[in-house]
Amino acid sequence: MELRLEGVSHCYGDVEVIRNIDLSIPKGRIVCIVGPSGCGKSTLLRFLGGLERPTSGTVSQVGEPPADSINPLTYVFQDFALLPWRTVEGNISLILSDHGVPKKRADEIISDVLARTKLSDFRKALPKQLSGGMKQRVAIARALAVNPAVLLMDEPLSALDSQTRELLMDDLVDLWTRSPFTAVYVTHNLAEAVRLGHQIVVLSRRPGKINEVVEIDTPLADRSATDPELERTQQHLWALMRAEAEAADMELIDD
C-alpha cells in the first residue's frame, strides 16, 4: 500500500501553514520530512493518518493494506502516548483486544513485538518505571503489534537524550533491515534524517512547500554517523534550511 498527497494546502484561520504539496510515500521505504519549526511537518503527518483534514487537496491510499494489518496507518508519537495506568503489556493488549484479536493470539503478538524491541523483561512494568528510551521502545512495539502498512513517526526521538537517540536509531535500522516497513518520519534533526531516510523531503518555512527531495542510495545498514557522504548530504540539507530556520526563529508568534 502507498500513500499519496495531492495538492494539499492548509490554513489555521487566516494563517496559511501548508501550500500545495504533492508527495507519494513508496512502499518499503522510509521518507523523512524535515523543515524549520512551524513549517507544518507534523500537520502533514496528521493528514497522512487521518487525524486531521486539509483545507484543500486529497490524501489517498493506493492499493489495499495487507489483510493481516490491524491498523494500517499507525503513529509513533514524540511524547510516547503510553497509558500510565497500564503495564507495557496492557498498553499493547488494549489495542489488540479492542480490534477483536483473541487473547491467545494477542499474547503471541505481544511476546513477538516485545522481543523485537528488546523489552521482553519489562512486560509487567508500568510506564513510570521506564526511562524515556524504554517508553519509546514500548510505543514502537505497540505500533508494530498492529502490523501497520505505513508507520507514521512524529519526531519519535526528539524527547530523548542524544545517547538514547543513537541507540534507538540503531534499533530502528535493525528493525527495518530484518523486515522492511514503510514509514514517514518527521524530524527537525538532520542527522536522524540522513541515517534513516531513503528519501528526505525538505519543507520551506511557513507556508510549508516542498523545497527539495533528496534521495540517499546507501543501504540503511551500511550508514554510519561518520560516513563522509552522509556528512555531505547533511551539510547540503543544512545549507537548504539555514536561512529559513533563521527567519522562522525571528518570526513573531501571532497566533
Binding site: 493518518g49 491498523n71 496507518l73 508519537f77 502516548a81 488494549l94
Partner: peptide, 25 residues
C-alpha cells in the same frame, strides 16, 4: 489529549476511548 489522540490513531472504538482512556485518566 495526546492519549485520546493515540486511541483514535489506533482506531479504538469511541466507548473504549471513553472507558479505557478518559475515565481512568
Amino acid at each position: 489529549r495526546s492519549l485520546i489522540r493515540m486511541g483514535q490513531s489506533f482506531g479504538l472504538r469511541w466507548s473504549t476511548v471513553v472507558f479505557r482512556i478518559v475515565l481512568p485518566g
